Simulated scan of single mutants.
Amino acid sequence: MIDTPEMPRVLSPRDEARVRFALQAERLGAEAFDLLPVDPSAARGERLRRALDMKRLADILVQRAVVAEREEGATWTQLADVAGISKQAAHERWAGDVTTWATTGRSVFSPDSENSALKTARRLDEVYADQNPEHPADAVSSGLDAVRFPGAIAAEAARRERAAGLHARLAPLNDQLGTAYAEWTLLNDGGARPKARAAVLTRLAALNEEVAALHEELTGAEPELADEHRSSAERARSSVASNREYAELLAAKAETEGMTK
Rank of each mutant, 00 (worst) to 15 (best):
residue 216 E to G: 01
residue 76 W to K: 10
residue 253 K to A: 15
residue 160 R to L: 12
residue 95 A to Y: 02
residue 105 G to S: 06
residue 44 R to G: 10
residue 100 T to E: 11
residue 180 A to C: 12
residue 144 L to V: 07
residue 19 V to M: 05
residue 245 E to N: 15
residue 219 T to C: 07
residue 237 R to F: 04
residue 37 P to V: 07
residue 53 D to K: 13
residue 209 E to S: 14
residue 133 P to L: 13
residue 185 T to Y: 02
residue 115 N to I: 00
residue 92 E to D: 15
residue 104 T to D: 03
residue 202 T to V: 13
residue 102 A to I: 05
residue 223 P to N: 08
residue 182 A to M: 00
residue 46 E to R: 13
residue 225 L to V: 01
residue 47 R to K: 07
residue 191 G to P: 07
residue 218 L to Q: 03
residue 170 L to P: 00
residue 30 A to K: 14
residue 171 A to D: 10
residue 202 T to G: 15
residue 53 D to C: 11
residue 259 M to R: 15
residue 130 D to Y: 11
residue 12 S to W: 02
residue 190 G to V: 04
residue 42 A to F: 02
residue 128 Y to P: 04
residue 110 S to V: 08
residue 15 D to A: 08
residue 77 T to D: 15
residue 113 S to V: 03
residue 118 L to H: 11
residue 153 I to N: 08
residue 123 R to S: 12
residue 60 I to L: 14
residue 173 L to T: 02
residue 257 E to N: 14
residue 98 V to T: 01
residue 107 S to Q: 12
residue 110 S to P: 03
residue 176 Q to A: 14
residue 129 A to G: 12
residue 28 L to K: 05
residue 154 A to C: 02
residue 153 I to F: 01
residue 73 G to V: 09
residue 102 A to F: 00
residue 225 L to A: 06
residue 90 A to L: 03
residue 104 T to M: 03
residue 100 T to W: 07
residue 101 W to H: 09
residue 82 V to I: 11
residue 22 A to N: 05
residue 74 A to L: 08
residue 123 R to Q: 14
residue 224 E to L: 10
residue 10 V to N: 03
residue 206 A to C: 05
residue 24 Q to R: 14
residue 40 P to C: 06
residue 107 S to V: 06
residue 62 V to Y: 02
residue 154 A to N: 09
residue 230 R to L: 05
residue 249 L to Y: 14
residue 102 A to N: 05
residue 136 P to W: 04
residue 229 H to F: 07
residue 36 L to T: 12
residue 142 S to D: 12
residue 84 G to Y: 10
residue 73 G to E: 07
residue 63 Q to T: 04
residue 208 N to K: 00
residue 191 G to C: 09
residue 131 Q to D: 13
residue 145 D to K: 06
residue 221 A to P: 02
residue 162 R to W: 07
residue 62 V to I: 11
residue 239 S to H: 13
residue 40 P to K: 06
residue 206 A to N: 13
residue 216 E to V: 03
residue 112 D to H: 14
residue 229 H to Q: 01
residue 74 A to T: 08
residue 138 D to Y: 09
residue 44 R to A: 13
residue 251 A to P: 12
residue 16 E to Y: 02
residue 133 P to V: 14
residue 192 A to I: 05
residue 18 R to C: 02
residue 261 K to C: 13
residue 107 S to F: 01
residue 102 A to L: 08
residue 38 V to D: 15
residue 79 L to Q: 09
residue 64 R to W: 01
residue 55 K to Y: 10
residue 163 A to W: 01
residue 187 L to R: 11
residue 4 T to M: 05
residue 1 M to I: 07
residue 224 E to H: 13
residue 178 G to Q: 04
residue 111 P to Y: 00
residue 183 E to T: 09
residue 72 E to D: 15
residue 117 A to I: 03
residue 207 L to Y: 01
residue 68 A to V: 01
residue 161 E to R: 11
residue 146 A to R: 13
residue 190 G to H: 05
residue 261 K to N: 15
residue 185 T to H: 04
residue 17 A to S: 15
residue 26 E to K: 10
residue 140 V to F: 06
residue 143 G to F: 00
residue 91 H to G: 07
